[in-house]
Design a binder for these strands. Structure first.
Length: 407
DNA sequence: TCTGGGGTCCTAGGACCC
DNA sequence: TCTGGGGTCCTAGGACCC
């Protein structure tokens, strides 16, 4: 095998303050204002996106809307337009795919692009070298997104996915940063550990307790120190911290249509709901609604679930999950029966519940649509519901338990 | 920092089977 | 049936990401 040459051709592209940017396209009067997406002023919920104007007041994504209201009472608060976001996300991807065929969407506002082998395609006499060529191409890609969609974006180019993401963060807002092969360690060394993808608040705190603040210190740290924190990921994380991570893009995250020969399908389908105050009956009716929703999504994807999981969070934030393996199904009433059983058994503490959730996993492809004869009565009933919903909207039909108590 | 909703991946113990 | 080791599935919890 040839020795692999490290070469900076992995690009991380991230749309700046994405939801806010889309809101500004929908309503240009929001430009220049402090804008916070995530909920109504003073209401429940958390900040999912905030403009740089709002950030100067200390507003950060993930923060509760209530705290954000206290920090920036004058800001414009918006609940958001999910459909528009996916639409702009898709259109962004279409532009990116004009520049390289190898694109992986990591989230609604973040994509990874592999430019290996594209150099000769784009080379121009004025380019100093191949790195220069790719940098120029990425700049024009960012410009195309801005010109055609009106969305500001940033990009990082590096030898690995992890470093490309870090570089993209350093380039924000609206910048492009190219980290040449050989410059990886020097770029990462002075950064706080939290900047490395894979190190969250918990690991950060534990590293600080060990006196490890920067990535240089993490790289130098003894393996025995890091192992209790990162377990099996220790060596991979240390490689990432040195900028020696893989130059592969990996698989598309929501591996939608991917399935193995046994018919297994990747992923989970879940819905959850947090409420202010609730009594037992509304909780159970919310559970019923959640079962309907996840099952409807499963049928739309053409899958059945082999495992059902209930999630329960008490007001003190203590959270438990209870799951059961079942005969694969996508029929609401069957899932609902299991969920209610799990719920009644799991709800042992004499404390109000603040959240319930239902998740479907161990997904498998359902029998071909042609063999409708194999569907039992519950299946047929569910499919009739889907047909009605396709015509008249999701809320046209509900299970009796959902309707009775949620109106 | 009193914390929404959608996910992914990892760990670890126990059951069960050979 | 006092006893081994490996493989795989199930369940529960937790960290992390956007």
């Amino acid at each position: 095998m040839l020795p692999s040459v490290r070469i900076a051709r992995i690009c991380c592209l991230d749309l700046d303050t994405f939801f806010v940017s889309v809101e500004r396209l929908l309503d240009p009067s929001l430009r220049g204002k402090a804008v916070i997406v995530g909920g109504h002023k003073g209401g429940r919920g958390v900040v999912t996106s905030s403009s740089y104007e709002a950030r100067t007041f200390g507003v950060r994504s993930g923060m509760s809307i209530r705290d954000a209201t206290a920090l920036a009472p004058h800001a414009v608060f918006l609940p958001g337009h999910a459909g528009e976001y996916s639409d702009y996300s898709r259109r962004t991807r279409e532009i990116v795919e004009r520049f390289s065929p190898i694109v992986i969407a990591a989230s609604i506002d973040e994509q990874y692009v592999d430019f290996r082998g594209c150099e000769s395609l784009y080379r121009k006499p004025g380019d100093a070298d191949d790195d220069d060529t790719i940098l120029r191409v990425v700049r024009s890609m960012v410009r195309a997104i801005e010109d055609e969609l009106g969305l500001p974006a940033s990009a990082g180019i590096a030898t690995s996915k992890s470093l490309a993401k870090v570089a993209c963060g350093l380039a924000k807002p609206n910048g492009v940063l190219f980290v040449r092969a050989g410059d990886e360690e020097a770029t990462l060394a002075p950064l706080p550990v939290r900047k490395l993808p894979g190190i969250g608040p918990v690991s950060e705190r534990r590293l600080h307790e060990l006196g490890i603040e920067t990535l240089a210190q993490l790289v130098a740290a003894d393996d025995a120190l890091l192992r209790p924190i990162f377990g099996a990921s220790t060596s991979g994380l240390r490689r990432d911290a040195r900028g020696l991570g893989s130059g592969e893009l990996g698989r598309e995250r929501p591996a939608f249509r991917e399935h193995d020969p046994r018919g297994a399908v990747h992923g989970t389908i879940s819905n959850e709901r947090t409420f202010a105050e609730a009594n037992e009956r509304t909780t159970e009716s919310i559970l019923c609604g959640l079962c309907e929703r996840v099952c409807s999504r499963a049928r739309r994807r053409g899958v059945r679930a082999g495992t059902v999981t209930l999630r329960l969070r008490y007001v003190d934030f203590h959270t438990i999950t209870r799951s059961r393996t079942i005969t694969p199904t996508s029929v609401d009433v069957e899932v609902h029966r299991v969920v209610l059983e799990l719920y009644r058994r799991a709800r042992t503490r004499p404390l109000p519940v603040r959240l319930v959730g239902v998740a479907l996993s161990k997904l498998s492809l359902e029998p071909s649509q042609l063999s409708l004869a194999t569907f039992d009565q519950g299946d047929r009933r569910a499919r009739t519901v889907d047909a009605v919903r396709d015509k008249f909207g999701y809320h046209a039909v509900h299970l009796a338990t959902t309707v009775r108590t949620s109106r």
